[in-house]
Amino acid sequence: MKKFLAFGAIALGYSIAATASLAEDWTPPGPITMHIAFPPGGGSDSQARLIAEELETRYGWTITPQNTPGKAGLIMAKEMQGAPADGTVFGIGISEALDYGMADGTADMTPDDVTPIVTTTLAEVAFVVPASKGWKTFDDFVAAAKAGAPLRVGAITPKIADVTYLMGKEAGIDMNITMVKGGRGMLNALYAGDLDAGFVAGAHSKGVKAGELVELVSGMSRKLSLTPDAPLLGDLGVPYNLDIYFMYFGPKGMDGAAQATLAQSISEIVLDESTKAGALLKANFGGGEAISGEELQAFIDSSFASAKELMQAASE
């Protein structure tokens, strides 16, 4: 599994190198503002700050990281509207801001209103329960839900709540879905016994290794690295997935050379485990994954379409 990922990463690295000649001569015309769609503190924020630091040392650019959190990244996407497109303003958020966040139209934006640059990693999303419950598989969970009162399941974003709901619907069980703040809030509630289960995006891996938490389902389109036997959402009859990438994007109509240079330099950093940023990604998410260019655009287009369907399906 790991090998496959590493191979994929190398392959991507090469595909980026092919476009490098186009990008080589771009330098930012002034200091760069790098927005971070997460609150300060925590792994996602550190990831962004470490990448900024490494970019500064490698290329001598001036980068000021700035936290612009809120609404799962939509606030930052709004900030991009009207920002200069010369490569001096861009930001890091999660792909959910572009697909699910913009799908229902209230945000008055579509993914075409921003320029995707590059992903840094895929969040390791898993449906997790405390080990103390004694549930080893998703079937155990379903059996427990059918036997007693509705179980309490947490969700950290609306998209995850929708998928959780559909998963329960497919399995024929009732759940009380509760929104919680971030992975940390979810883990605290699981440990305290306030919640019975929930999808977590990577913050749980330490608890799984320690035997305090158990992964029952993979939320991604691929297997979990710690629990490869856990079923995928598709195996449970849910035709959606929770592939959530951490990704950089800039304002609409961003300078092509800037986009290519940034994609290349950021991917080199996140794939290099000897950098602080690379090491952090390795420790928290099993490694960096840099997708850019047409492949990234294709992912966003398809997940935007599927987010609309998901919204529709979950509201029925």
Binding site: P40, G41, G42, G43, D45, S46, R184, N188, Y191, A192, K206, G207, A210, G211, E212
Partner: peptide, 20 residues
């Protein structure tokens, strides 16, 4: 503690967990 990651005041802070 809100701004700096890794520490959220509240009951969960005082878990004397033995395994991790």
């Amino acid at each position: 503690t809100d701004s700096i990651g890794g520490f959220t005041p509240g009951p969960s802070v005082f878990r004397f967990s033995e395994s991790v």
